[in-house]
Write a protein that binds this DNA or RNA. Structure first.
Lengths: 139, 139
DNA sequence: TCCGGATATTAGACAAAGTCCAGATTGCCG
DNA sequence: CGGCAATCTGGACTTTGTCTAATATCCGGA
């Protein structure tokens, strides 16, 4: 993806290009995710968006993240049973999860190869393949 | 792993061989998991164990599953943000998750090959590699 | 400009999964 | 039997996320 500055104005364009009506709150949430290129949980998004004074409700944060997900603007990463992370990087890639710190980072899919997967059951389509490497600091 | 009958007596041996004191409740929980070779959530385990009349408390089910996990008797599978599954199959394998039904099944690791993973960050050891194929019934 | 409907947002009640704790039980050993 | 350690328990609590009914905002047309 071409490099760009993640200004709030650009966010509006990004949202529109994904068929999302760019409202105030949606722009803030998109900005939170895209300006840091990080994996954030709903909680973290809420905290960021509401730093100064409360601006966006919990319901809206959840609604918006779900909407972004449906529209393919972000990806969901399920590595920790206690919370879901949202990933602004939608290009194919995998994840490295540091179990003890909770840090989550990307592994480019380019050079990784997965082969020998059995055929899918009839009438099924793949929705996605998640590869998660769980690591821990050496004792 | 050699085939065997998952009787309650054998469960006691299995627990002992994993350095777990085989109590009544632990045997029941192990039996629930190993007699059906399925992925069960804590809820499901509790339901199975307490079919006739309530016998085992929620706290014990959670404590016991966590203990089994630490002792390497079962594996945790995180595919659904709303619940964790416990997998009595600890041999290396991957998972196929049917998103719409919630069904989870095994993919033998034998013929699957993953290559080209980047080197780990210094001082880190791999705790496990989870490969999850998410599928959905074709529309 | 004003109106009306569609779209968004909100607070707060609610639900589900999981944790925690202090007290009761159990099992074992002398 | 008495006592100690390990285990189990009910129930309160926390966290993440969902739902709902009411309100606010936006926008196009008269």
């Amino acid at each position: 993806m071409a490099r760009m500055h993640y200004t709030r104005d650009n966010m509006a364009g990004l949202l529109r290009s994904h068929d999302i009506n760019p409202t105030h709150q949606r722009i803030e949430i998109a900005h939170a995710l895209f300006s840091r290129q990080e994996h954030l949980s709903a909680d973290q998004v809420m905290a960021i968006v509401n730093t100064r004074h409360s601006e966006t409700s919990k319901a809206t944060v959840y609604n918006t993240l779900k909407l972004f997900l449906e529209k393919g603007l972000v990806r969901e990463v399920i590595v920790d049973p206690s919370k879901v992370f949202f990933d602004p990087n939608t290009s194919p890639h995998h994840h490295l999860y540091e179990v003890d710190t909770g840090r989550l980072s990307d592994i480019d899919a380019e050079q990784v190869q997965i082969s020998g997967l059995p055929p899918l059951p009839a009438g099924m389509v793949t929705e996605g393949i998640d590869l998660i490497v769980r690591v821990r600091r050496k004792a």
